[in-house]
Simulated scan of single mutants.
Amino acid sequence: MVAKLQDKSWLVNNKLEITSKIEQGLLPHAMLLLGSHLAGQEELGNWLSGLLLCEHSKTLTEPCGQCKSCSLVKAQTHPDLVTIDNSEKTIGVESVRSAGAFLQKTAQLAKNKAVVIFSAENMTESAANALLKTLEEPTSNSYLILVCNDIEMLLPTIVSRCSVVKINPPTGEELANMVSDKGLINDFSNLNELAELTDPKCQEQRAEVIEQLTVFLEQFVNGNELVNLLANNIHGMRWLTNSFNQLIRIQSGWQDSLINHEMNQLSGRYSTEQLWQCINLLNQATKQIKLLTQANKTFTIEALLVDIEHILTTD
């Protein structure tokens, strides 16, 4: 299904920029690697931490893979590397405090020390505040690498203290060439959809959400099933909002551009005014959800679907 997605050749420019700073001794203490889901920020974070610890990093643009440090990094046992990877779960304050204390110590094996925080947007408020202290008191030869999918969920004070590296995957025809199912591509496809366009598992998850959403918009009988899907998938709310946006676009004369979109079958069911009201609710709920715990997230989505049903069943 995916054409050379694992290669992520578009990371080359980011690597060149970073290695140039390393060669000049100008690499910042804290770096924020930012990209849409599956854009390659995780790979870039692993590459950078490996390069910083490699015994030959000053002469290479890739970790050598042969030295003792590289072997320990590969085995995830390097004493000078800490990774925090809670995936879709929250990152607690103790993990961040422990990482900050680690950076205060002297390196045991390599010249540098590195902490990589994956899905940094999942830090709790307390964890984010603890990280600020680490950012404000950097130590020599220590590097903090934040890997982020959604910069809006990070404190502005954290972002301002980091050097932001934006990852730009292919767009347009180059992106389309990576997708074997061309029916997924339309005139409105963009980088935010990289996950479902290039990852078969994500495509299946989206199809399930769209199927349940269609049933909901037709009959309003499966609210609980839809809530669970939306609450337990990091893309759920984006897919929901996108579906309503596509309905608006279809009604606005873009039906030819969206001829293969699943929402076509519902395009005449509701008025444009009703759909705009739903989109306003969705935008408000999306902002709230980014700051909520999982339990409150589920409750907010439940309330959102109740409000949407009320709007769409009221003449």
Rank of each mutant, 00 (worst) to 15 (best):
N280R: 14
Y270R: 07
L226R: 06
V115N: 03
S163D: 00
N13E: 15
N192H: 13
G253K: 06
F102D: 02
I145N: 06
S271K: 08
I84A: 09
E225F: 00
T61R: 14
Q41K: 04
P63H: 00
H37V: 08
T293A: 13
C162S: 13
S257H: 12
E152T: 14
S9E: 15
F216D: 00
K113H: 05
T298C: 03
W254M: 14
I145G: 01
L131P: 06
G223P: 06
G236Q: 08
V116Y: 03
M263D: 06
F299H: 10
L81H: 03
T106F: 10
K290Y: 09
T77R: 10
T106V: 13
L60S: 07
C278G: 08
N177S: 14
S119F: 11
A128W: 09
K111R: 11
V96D: 02
S252H: 09
L155H: 05
S160Y: 11
T314M: 02
I91F: 03
A99R: 12
L33P: 05
A127S: 14
H310T: 14
A114R: 07
H56D: 11
L197A: 06
I91S: 03
L266Y: 09
L247Y: 01
T19W: 01
E121V: 06
S189W: 05
K182V: 04
C54W: 00
N233V: 03
S180N: 07
L60H: 12
E121Q: 15
A3S: 04
H29Y: 10
F220K: 07
K58I: 08
I158W: 04
L281S: 07
T314R: 12
E273R: 08
L154T: 00
S36I: 04
A39W: 01
E218T: 13
L11V: 10
G50A: 05
T83K: 11
C148E: 08
T298N: 09
L213Q: 02
L229P: 02
L51K: 03
V73T: 11
E262V: 12
E273L: 11
R249K: 15
Q66C: 01
I145Y: 06
S36D: 12
N177C: 06
N186I: 07
I185D: 01
K4Y: 13
I259D: 13
R206M: 08
L5E: 00
V93Q: 07
A110P: 02
A130F: 07
C64V: 06
E211K: 15
V73H: 02
F216V: 09
N233H: 15
N190V: 09
E174K: 15
N233M: 01
T61C: 08
G236A: 08
L155Y: 05
A285F: 01
V96H: 03
K113C: 10
S243A: 15
Q265F: 07
S140G: 00
F188S: 04
V2Y: 00
P63W: 03
Q288F: 05
R161Q: 01
T171Q: 12
L109M: 15
L266H: 11
L26P: 03
P79G: 12
L27R: 10
T293H: 07
A176L: 10
D315V: 05
L175E: 01
S57M: 11
N122A: 04
L51I: 09
R269C: 11
S252Q: 06
N222T: 01
I151G: 01
I308S: 05
W254E: 06
Q66G: 00
F299W: 10
I289Q: 02
S95L: 09
K113V: 05
